[in-house]
Design a protein around this nucleic acid. Structure first.
Lengths: 209, 209
DNA sequence: GTGGTAACTTACCCAGGAGTCATATCCCTG
DNA sequence: CAGGGATATGACTCCTGGGTAAGTTACCAC
């Protein structure tokens, strides 16, 4: 391919690169993705990426901010439903399945164990996780209060368990791409029933069942 | 340091290298650990490691097998207590806290997201995870049967949740090194109570409470 | 049409980490 | 005390992947 413009405006090219990069980072992780990989997948050359994003970390930051915005919007939306406990849990799961269905790689892009521990991308992720943490801790703390346990360390550990459970369900779903969001929500309801017994009607109502 | 033997027998040197490497891999991950790092930490030179273990992957394999054996012995031991459900859960957690207390890095060595996806080390890990998976699936399946849910996909998802919860509790504990195994087991019991209500005496008995 | 600018690429540099080779020292054996 | 094997290392090579310098092409304004 010879040099010279192909008539693609910078904004358009940037958007295209980000889309390709989100997918690459999400599917292969930050460490498993080279800038050359992204350039190849986008059908352009490496220096163009450096020209537009400055560094691999710069590109990663843009991707992460985009993905975090998508997920955050969903988390916040379901937190505003005013539900508590299991009802809020299932509402959040259901919303996340729907939000991720068209772009499942977004999840692993944000929860990427190979992401670097410093740089702008890390800042963006840390900021997002801080907000997410506060949101989750709030919900868990309320649940704990209702159950009569106000120990902050207990709350912290319970929060870790809640997040892990949430991630496990999302990850399981991502590993079973033939399952629709609706079916997955039903499955979660069944699992809740298995563990907690008959569910309160409010829980079902939270996902229109 | 000049060349020439220091009078350390191969077997001793190998053991020393493995110990240092387990710690390095466990604390910084496979990808975050260079062979030179291990050599430095062990106070020897890089070629000696290649001489004794053939490759980074070869060293990793030995470390992983050692750590997996430690964890596996513990999992199997608690599976033989004959307990079911929550009782088995708390017994397994308690056993793991005790097993990990003297060498907490073993955990992350086995559950290392930066470990390679091929090679002998990977084989060893895959084999271990297969056994662990079967053990966990068995326990979860039994619980599901008791609750009247025999759907294999539901069991699979439930198993994923169970493993995630287990890992979350262990990880939380690893992040709070001032907490003793005993205290952590008590905390887990409190969390169980918070979620499931008053616990069956059998559950308490499983950890001598 | 001609200069300037935005869009692009080829060909390179460089750091870091896996892996190797030749060599040096020690100790044990005969 | 000479030879050989075990224990060790300094100084390499090679490759991958982030990052850059310099130049090439197309379009637009005047």
């Amino acid at each position: 391919m010879s040099a010279g413009t192909k008539g693609v405006a910078r904004a358009d090219r940037e958007a295209q690169i980000v889309e390709v990069a989100c997918r690459a980072f999400g599917e292969n992780g930050y460490a498993g993705t080279s800038v050359a990989d992204v350039a190849d997948a986008a059908g352009i050359s490496k220096p163009l990426i450096y020209n537009y994003f400055g560094s691999k970390d710069g590109l990663h930051e843009v991707c992460v901010r985009y993905a975090a915005d998508v997920l955050w919007a969903e988390f916040e939306r379901s937190s505003r439903t005013g539900t508590v406990g299991l009802a809020r849990a299932i509402a959040t799961l259901d919303g996340m399945f729907r939000a991720l269905a068209p772009q499942p790689w977004m999840w692993r892009l944000v929860f990427d164990p190979t992401a670097p521990a410093d740089g702008a991308g890390h800042e963006a992720l840390a900021d997002y996780e801080k907000r997410l943490f506060a949101l989750g801790e709030e919900g868990v703390a309320e649940l704990m209060r209702l159950a009569g346990n106000e120990d902050p360390e207990d709350t912290s550990a319970m929060h870790a368990v809640w997040e892990a459970m949430f991630r496990a369900l999302v990850t399981w779903w991502l590993d079973h791409p033939e399952v629709t969001p609706d079916e997955m929500t039903d499955r979660c309801l069944r699992l809740f029933t298995t563990v907690f017994g008959e569910l309160d009607p409010q829980v079902l109502a939270a996902v229109d069942r």
